[in-house]
Design a protein around this nucleic acid. Structure first.
Lengths: 162, 162
DNA sequence: TTGGCTAAGTCTGTCAAGTGGACTTAGAAT
DNA sequence: ATTCTAAGTCCACTTGACAGACTTAGCCAA
């Protein structure tokens, strides 16, 4: 069934140049970067451990860690195993930790649309006594909880005409 | 300052094989796929419009659209401009729309850590009368709102030992 | 009925990036 | 001196991105 002509979508009038999603994806938008972040989020912090668990080529890992440091998402932290020289661990900074909602949202989506028979392999939980499962939800400033279809992206104050 | 040896992180005992983040990133984890999704989320649905706005090579766009269709995130929808033959638009399915929290979380992070002088170029808003800004927040099942440091990823029922 | 127009591809050669495997490095222990 | 290890570099190879030209299929005007 063919549709009547929609008017040109409003978004066509605005530039994609400075889009926040693009700029965020410049940093995260890479398969390996996400694998690295996952390892750091689950507490694996050493080069060799990350490499072996995530199956990343060394060169790529070196490059991605350097990029994440430069972007301020992680920092080096020296450690020393007994009988060995000092080495570096990589830890999330506050900026990195603040990606939690992104990762939790991804897990939530994946658990819904790519479920495993055995159940979710990874769960976000409230640390400490509480221990309850953590989810993300959308909420508007008036306190509603809009369903996906009730949400729309609109140009904000920083939008540039094309 | 070097640290005492941490015990081996618990995550090291579990496989990354079936990790939900990885499996989700198989689908989303690509710069261009995200650009395509952004266009669809802001309402740009036609091949040429997406290509031109996002600056995607045609071949790549063809390939990514096919992949998104196969994964069930988008579907083709025929349309007809006056005086032209029928063509296809691409629209988000429910599965695609349910990525809203992921995109909103990314925008929220980007607006915080990669801010523009002019303000956010893109805002998520509650459609219709409300029109208020939409954000995502983490919440645990006991009703707390944990800060990032209070959240932890733990192996769930589907976790596989290595 | 020919030729032009357009959106949506397809084709091609080039070049950058990812990849697996071997090699190197720097402290510490033997 | 030699060995060990985590971290990193080097190399050759292959895959994928890329820009630009070309193709296709309906519709229209002349």
């Amino acid at each position: 069934m063919s549709t009547a002509v929609d008017s040109v979508p409003e978004a066509m009038r605005w530039s994609t140049e400075n889009c926040t999603i693009s700029r965020t994806m410049e940093i995260l938008g890479d398969k390996w970067t996400f694998h690295v972040l996952r390892e750091l989020f689950v507490g694996v912090r050493r080069f060799e451990d990350i490499r072996a668990r995530a199956g990343i080529p060394r060169q790529v890992l070196t490059e991605r860690l350097a990029a994440l440091i430069e972007r301020g998402l992680i920092r080096r932290h020296p450690y020393r195993l007994p009988g060995q020289r000092e080495r570096s661990e990589y830890r999330l900074t506050q900026a990195g930790l603040d990606l939690y909602p992104v990762l939790v949202a991804m897990i939530q989506w994946g658990d819904q649309y790519l479920p495993l028979d055995a159940g979710p392999p990874l769960e976000a939980r409230h640390r400490g006594d509480c221990g309850a499962r953590v989810t993300v939800r959308m909420e508007c400033e008036d306190g509603h909880e809009p369903a996906p279809r009730e949400v729309a992206f609109r140009p904000g104050p920083g939008a540039q005409p094309r």
